[in-house]
Amino acid sequence: MSNNIRVGNISDIPSLGARVVKTEKGDIAIFRTEDNKVFALINKCPHKDGSLADGIVHGHKVTCPLHNWNINLEDGKVVAPDEGCAEHFVVNVDAEGNLFLQL
């Protein structure tokens, strides 16, 4: 059985924003995009560990606040020409907007 934890509700996260959740796998950033999709990435930029939750969210991407790398929220891949990948987690949203993070 996969390890699911409930991490609040979509309404806890501002649109085009992110919040951090503490887990046994470390800090995980939960993002909410403008189209109300929710994504989860380890809160460490593949470049120099910048806090991705503090970045600017646009489309399905986030720009890291430290040196402006762009990271794809869907799979954690860094947008070219930079290279790298942030660990990516599945989040499920139920009908009431509750968020379930799969670790």
């Binding site: 991490v7 996260i13 959740v21 503490k22």
Partner: peptide
Amino acid sequence: QHEFNFLPTEAV
């Protein structure tokens, strides 16, 4: 306030 607090967690 959401900027300064972590999201709550709850095992399911």
